[in-house]
């Protein structure tokens, strides 16, 4: 566990004693600045797993460690990008991005400077004072990304961030995310149910099975970026993973 930034040991989560656990005996280590993708069908406990890593859900058994410290709640070193944007509708783009900084007690000018920097990085310059519902889905999730980045976490947890986007926007956002990640390296744990997305983005892909949620297979993806959907190695990997999945294709 020594060189892992975030790890979990024998993680088990069950909500009802009568039902099989949602997650059973998950052990996983994430290296610093790794782009790890957790792939799995719906209802396999991916979100629960991510919530455990974020500290929003406490495990029934086992534990999550950030470096050597046991995770007992949310922490600033772990930022989250939520499914379906989860922006504050009463705040502007700037207000949303600066929100976490405000709760950390950063001064107003500094907050603004940091927020503007990340708004610019995700390509939303000029929309600082727009309210979320005037933005498109892709733009909303850019705000979500900027908000997660702004507080300067070491680990970014992303829960199907592009799941609500249409295919084209999704593809564009995947590229944008990689560009952002190259500019500002962070450890990313990215949850998705989309095999192409997993192989396109990840340094490593963890495939989960459902009921109970367990790690089924694990693959390092060594194809250099930018990856192409039609690259033979890409297709072979996609084929291999999809053969192992319970996903309906």
């Amino acid at each position: 566990m020594d060189d892992y930034i975030l790890s979990c040991q024998d993680l088990t989560v069950s909500f009802k004693d009568s039902e099989p656990p949602v997650l059973r005996g998950l052990t996983l280590g994430v290296r610093e600045n790794e782009f790890l993708v957790i792939l799995g069908p719906g209802q396999c406990g991916k979100t629960v797993f991510l919530n455990c890593l974020a500290g929003l859900q406490l495990p029934t058994e086992g534990a999550v460690y950030y470096r050597h410290n046991k995770v007992v709640g949310p922490g600033r070193e772990r930022g989250v990008v939520f499914q379906k944007y989860a922006l504050f509708p009463w705040q502007t783009v700037l207000g949303n991005v600066a929100w976490g900084l405000k709760s950390q007690g950063v001064s107003k000018e500094k907050r603004r400077a940091i927020a503007l920097k990340y708004i610019q990085l995700v390509g939303l310059s000029g929309f600082e004072n727009a309210y979320p519902q005037t933005l498109s889905g892709g733009m909303k999730q850019r705000v979500g990304l900027a908000r997660a980045y702004a507080t300067g976490p070491k680990v970014l947890l992303m829960d199907e961030p592009f799941g609500a986007l249409d295919a084209q926007t999704r593809y564009a956002m995947e590229n944008e995310l990689l560009i952002l990640w190259e500019k500002e390296k962070r450890t990313v744990i990215f949850v998705t149910n989309n095999i192409e997305e997993a192989v396109f983005l990840g340094d490593r892909v963890i495939l989960m099975s459902a009921r109970p949620g367990r790690i089924k297979i694990e693959r390092e993806i060594l194809i250099p970026h930018p990856r192409s959907y039609t690259d033979p190695t890409f297709l072979a990997l996609r084929q291999e993973i999809s053969a192992e999945t319970d996903l309906a294709l």
């Binding site: 929003l56 989250v80 504050f88 950390q104």
Partner: peptide, 26 residues
């Protein structure tokens, strides 16, 4: 109150009362 918005605030380290004030109230 959208529970996901409350979760966003908690991820940023907000206390329960802060979540009440900053997320619940608006």
């Amino acid at each position: 109150t959208n529970p996901i918005l409350a979760r966003v605030a908690r991820v940023h380290g907000a206390s329960d009362f802060t979540v009440f004030l900053k997320i619940g109230l608006p």
